[in-house]
Design a protein around this nucleic acid. Structure first.
Length: 681
DNA sequence: GGGTTAATAT
DNA sequence: AATATTAACC
């Protein structure tokens, strides 16, 4: 009803009059490397009463857009720019946020104009641009959105805006037409009510009964994005619906989906456990990469590649996967994990992986499943969160990197948008799946490794990343880790729930105290455990922090994918895959190489020792807890370790506790935040 | 009304 | 069997 009404009103008069003063205050991002042009443009736009933001760098523009896709309604960009081709920017924006982009150039060459349009520009203005032309650019916003939510300004800060990540599903079709259609073709349900059927094939065969909603990936993304924006606490069907701004979708649909989603999150959380944390933390970055690569590929190719065939682009494949993962995998994993953890595993895999790592083999088997295990989830999450990549089939390394960085470091920005907790998201379940000790080993092994890589990454990343935004976050995270490591040994940290809290807080508050020298951390072998602990903590903390603010969301689809894959990736593969990524960064790779040797040794030891040692520690800890169940102590630990309750020896996951936690959170909803914080922290 | 959970239908 | 939809209950 409402939607249709809106639609109808919109459709009826395309004029923006519907929204209060819509054109006025429209948020425009102007990009031009020429300061004079930019200034001029800025002035003209302001005369149109738009809310203008300017930047002279395309990359900066991209960064701003990615940080908060709801921040702008329209982008107007010069074509020729030194740091990035305007077309490239256009393409990325189109793919990632589906915002209307207007190209600007002094060159009116038809070919160029055509190119701009082909790349998805909704308009192409020739300099010098006249204000008359700018006065009407708002129409592109309307057109792009197609429908606008009724009261858009109702919510305070940002209007709901038209976020929606690129809904275009283009990326999916194997055929490869990726270009722009002007809009999305996705399958939004329909538009007209009854009689008119839309030409779209899919469902909705009839108008009479509304076809059931197919929660396509895109739709789910929107959903996740909406949840992210609202924050899980406030994510209620109605609001989500508003944010999603998908016509035809009803509150009930959203509610149902939300129900499922919550269930999913719950599971994820439960599964997470330490392992996940550890892995995630360490590998976060690496994993991410992998995941992004892998995940995306899979995702996109779902249809194409046999693996996910069943998943069918349509949709919910993710859901299904989740379900499976969660239920079967998750559980089994736990058990396995637990048992495995205890066992000292062999190092072959590790060694192999290590070797691979050392070699820095660039080959990454997208297909490798295990990859997904380890990295999969985090990566996927990140991907989802990022959302950006997904659409684009080709994602430049930068992009992936960015993503990664975002995920890892830039909690603020990216996180804020998308609530993802690494922790939450991580799919531990996968690991267990792998099989025997592998999973464990990996995770543990990985940890050290990853920590290194992570750190390295951090260093490199800052340079690498075009965006500066990550720096702060990164630092924070790094600091955090450092802090922890230095401060306490792993064991302690585990034991003391307090520590984490403090650290978390600090992190949260952006502690700057601890200078980061991860170098020390990395290089110093003794701290290994510590580092590990750090990592875990960091993860947990990060997760906690994030979770506090946001909800983990996006993982869904990706997770599913991963799940499906996850069967056998070998550690080596993972490493290798990771490596290449890192390798891309010269400095980074370099450092990595140098360290590799050390690592190798350490790795082996650490692996074995670690896995067993770490686990043992954990176990002890657990037991300890059992013996002295201190309610206080429990907070973190419960999550991390506490599995004691039912699990086999030590199940990292603390499923129950997590579950309970979730439940508690749910119950308390509003107060939930506090509770969560309390708990987590 | 709106949200959440449980049941039901597909 | 999984998922969307509907019903029931705050």
């Amino acid at each position: 009803m409402t939607v249709e009404e809106i639609r109808g009103s919109m459709g009826g008069g395309e004029r923006g009059n519907n929204y209060d003063h819509f054109p006025i205050g429209m948020r425009v991002l102007a990009v031009d490397d020429d300061p004079i042009c930019l200034k001029l443009l800025d002035g003209l736009l302001r005369k149109c009463q738009y809310q203008v933001t300017t930047t002279s760098q395309a990359r900066m523009a991209l960064k701003m857009l990615r940080e908060n896709r709801d921040r702008f309604d329209l982008v107007i960009s010069d074509v020729h720019m030194p740091d990035m081709d305007g077309f490239k920017l256009l393409e990325l924006v189109g793919l990632e946020m589906d915002l209307p982009v207007i190209m600007l150039s002094a060159n009116s060459d038809t070919k160029l104009v055509r190119k701009g349009i082909d790349h998805g520009a909704c308009d192409y203005l020739v300099k010098p641009v006249r204000i008359e032309e700018l006065r009407n650019i708002w129409q592109h916003v309307i057109r792009k959105k197609k429908v606008e939510p009724k009261s858009q300004s109702k919510s305070n800060d940002q209007d709901k805006a038209y976020q929606v990540s690129g809904e275009s599903g283009r990326g999916q079709s194997p055929t490869g037409n990726v270009d722009q259609n002007g809009k999305c073709n996705k399958k939004r349900k329909d538009e007209e009510d009854e009689n008119d059927e839309n030409g779209n094939d899919n469902e909705d065969p009839t108008t009479q009964k509304r076809a059931r909603v197919v929660w396509s990936i895109e739709l789910h993304r929107k959903f996740v994005a909406a949840v992210g924006q609202l924050g899980i606490e406030k994510a209620v069907p109605k609001r989500i619906l508003d944010l999603m701004n998908v016509d035809g979708l009803t509150r009930e649909n959203v509610a149902s989906h939300l129900q499922k989603y919550r269930l999913y999150l719950k599971r994820i959380n439960s599964v997470q456990t330490q392992q996940a944390n550890m892995v995630a933390a360490l590998g976060g970055r690496d994993y991410v990469r992998m995941g992004s690569l892998d995940g995306l590929g899979d995702f996109r190719t779902l249809g194409g590649s046999g693996r996910y065939t069943h998943a069918a682009l349509s949709s919910y494949s993710s859901g299904g996967m989740l379900g499976r993962l969660n239920s079967a995998a998750g559980l089994s994993v736990r058990n396995l994990a637990a048992s495995q953890l205890l066992q000292p595993s062999h190092g072959q895999n590790l060694s192999n992986s290590i070797n691979a790592f050392t070699k820095l083999n660039p080959n990454i088997p997208p297909a490798s499943q295990n990859t997904s295990l380890f990295q999969g989830i985090p990566a996927s999450l990140e991907l989802d969160q990022l959302q950006q990549n997904k659409s684009s089939a080709h994602i430049p390394l930068d992009e992936s990197r960015l993503l990664t960085s975002d995920v890892l470091g830039c909690s603020n920005n990216s996180l804020s948008n998308v609530p993802n907790n690494p922790m939450l998201l991580q799919g531990n379940p996968q690991q267990p799946l792998t099989g025997g000790g592998f999973g464990n080993q990996h995770s543990q092994n990985m940890t050290p490794f990853s920590s290194d890589s992570f750190n390295t990454g951090v260093n490199g990343s800052s340079n690498f990343l075009e965006h500066g935004r990550c720096n702060e976050n990164w630092q924070n995270s790094v600091q955090l880790s450092k802090f922890q490591s230095n401060s306490f040994p792993l064991t302690e940290s585990f034991i003391n729930s307090h520590l984490p809290q403090s650290s978390v807080r600090e992190a949260t508050t952006h502690l700057q105290n601890s200078p980061l020298d991860f170098t020390s951390t990395t290089s110093v072998s003794p701290p290994f455990e510590d580092s590990r602990g750090e990592i875990q903590y960091r993860q947990s903390m990060a997760g906690a922090v994030q979770s506090m603010n946001q909800t983990p969301s996006q993982a869904w689809a990706d997770n599913k994918q991963h799940y499906s894959h996850n069967s056998n990736n070998t550690f080596g593969n993972n490493l290798s895959s990771q490596v290449p990524n890192d390798g891309s960064m010269a400095s980074l790779s370099h450092s990595m190489n140098q360290r590799n040797e050390n690592f190798g040794r350490r790795m082996d030891i650490s692996l074995i020792g670690r896995s067993s040692g770490g686990s043992s520690t954990l176990v002890q800890h657990t037991e300890h807890e059992k013996l002295t169940p201190d309610s206080r102590t429990r907070s973190n630990e419960d999550y991390l370790l506490e599995p004691t309750k039912q699990q086999v020896g030590f199940s990292p996951q603390g499923y129950d506790s997590l579950d309970d936690l979730m439940t508690a959170m749910k119950r308390e909803q509003d107060g939930g935040m506090l509770d969560e914080g309390t708990i987590w922290i």
